[in-house]
Amino acid sequence: MVKEIERAGIPVVHMCTVVPISLTIGANRIIPAVGIPYPLGDPNLGEEKSKKLRRKLVERALKALQTEVDGQTVFED
């Protein structure tokens, strides 16, 4: 799906839990997410911190969307 969105001409960022899979399928802008049962946040930290973490990850995704890339790029931080 990532590739088809990209092919349609819309910049897309993939927030995923297993980065090697994302690299294999061909996503170009990749954000490593937290964990498989909770990609955006970490409920073990409590609601407030979990939400802060989610905000941080989304901010990173928006930054990735506004960053020029030549090829597949993993935005670690």
Binding site: I10, P11, V12, V13, H14, M15, S22, P39
Partner: peptide, 15 residues
């Protein structure tokens, strides 16, 4: 649909 609706960027999340 995204294009028709004027979407300019997408966040795709995967578990």
């Amino acid at each position: 649909k995204l294009i028709a609706d004027g979407v300019g960027a997408v966040i795709l999340t995967s578990t």
